[in-house]
Amino acid sequence: MTITQRIVTVALCGLATVLTRALPFLIFTPGRPTPKYVQYLGKALPAAIFGMLVVYCLKDVSFLTGDHGLPQMIAIAVTVGLHLWKKQMLLSVAGGTAAYMLLVQLVF
């Protein structure tokens, strides 16, 4: 990417963010009910989007060749295990990342 393309990419991310934050204030006047479909998407989208993002993070893992994605799978298991155990987001993220770093640097 050229420097201009990078600036455009970051600007587009910023613009999208501002749009999602400002749009309700521009569209809906207080006191008027929000459309049912919009309310529904508000509840249904987050879980789907974060599921999608987990897959996005793993998109370049090759499960059939090389290490078969084992470091990723083990590190995700560590992250999930820590989170089910302590429910501390920062601990789970730090623990899972540390496990992954150890695995790719020392084991695989």
Binding site: T20, G42, L45, I49
Partner: peptide
């Protein structure tokens, strides 16, 4: 993609 990731903000705004 940015819109989709940030879409939840719509509901904060509401």
């Amino acid at each position: 993609m940015a819109l989709m990731i940030q879409a939840r903000h719509l509901f904060y705004g509401i």
